[in-house]
């Protein structure tokens, strides 16, 4: 909680972990047209879900954004987020909007936005979103994929659903600041101009514009 509330506190984006925070922060830096807002790392899905009702009720809050991974089931994640929103008095649509869900402010309740990583349409997580930011002609990306693909089944310690994450990290480990997503966006090796990233930034702007 920031002592001495700034204007920024009226618009807050809640994310699950530090990677989400750094990726979004760097996307914002790359896009001067993105409106200002505060980002808070909620340190885990459960803590984020528990905080939803409270973040919505903060005095003077105008907009609350929620970014969580769909993980194994888009529908399940949507339903867990929806339940917390409904408990807080928000009227939630049955299904997420592929462009990013926005629920307009009503009465004393602020505007609420939900983005399910990667794209509000399929299961997956932040790394699926980041993969879309890799240049299609990138020479290392096919190599990163085949490196992971060539690891025999018996030696794979990750679950099948984490395969993309493994490939993205394999690719990240070959970049200028190996492993760190944020700075790689900052240095321009991840593109913020692709269709998915544009969809995300336009959701952010619709959510946080005055």
């Amino acid at each position: 909680m920031a002592e001495g509330k700034s204007d920024k506190m009226s618009k807050i984006l809640l994310v699950e972990g530090p990677n989400d925070l750094h990726v979004i922060r760097h996307i914002r830096k790359k896009n001067p047209r993105i409106v200002d807002f505060d980002i808070e790392d909620k340190k885990g899905l459960e803590r984020l879900l528990n905080a939803i009702a409270l973040e919505i009720k903060v005095s003077g809050r105008n907009a609350v954004g929620i970014v969580v991974d769909a993980n194994d089931s888009l529908i399940e994640r949507w339903s867990s987020v929806s339940k917390k929103l409904r408990d807080a008095g928000i009227v939630v649509p049955k299904t997420p909007d592929s462009q990013g869900t926005i629920i307009e402010a009503s009465g004393s309740l602020p505007k609420v936005g939900v983005w399910l990583m990667p794209n509000n349409e399929s299961r997956g997580e932040l790394e699926h979103f980041v993969q879309e930011m890799i240049d299609p002609d990138d020479p290392v990306w096919p190599k990163s994929c085949s490196y992971i693909d060539n690891i025999p089944e018996k030696d794979r310690k990750f679950r099948e659903s984490k395969e993309m994450k493994a490939k993205v990290y394999a690719w990240l480990s070959t970049q200028e600041t190996p492993g760190l997503m944020g700075p790689i966006i900052g240095s321009g090796q991840l593109s913020c101009d692709g269709p998915l990233c544009n969809r995300f930034t336009s959701w952010i702007n619709r959510l946080f514009k005055n």
């Binding site: 909680m1 909620k42 803590r47 528990n50 905080a51 409270l54 903060v58």
Partner: peptide, 8 residues
């Protein structure tokens, strides 16, 4: 929860 997470 507010006390744990320092939510105003």
């Amino acid at each position: 929860i507010a006390a744990e997470q320092n939510i105003e």
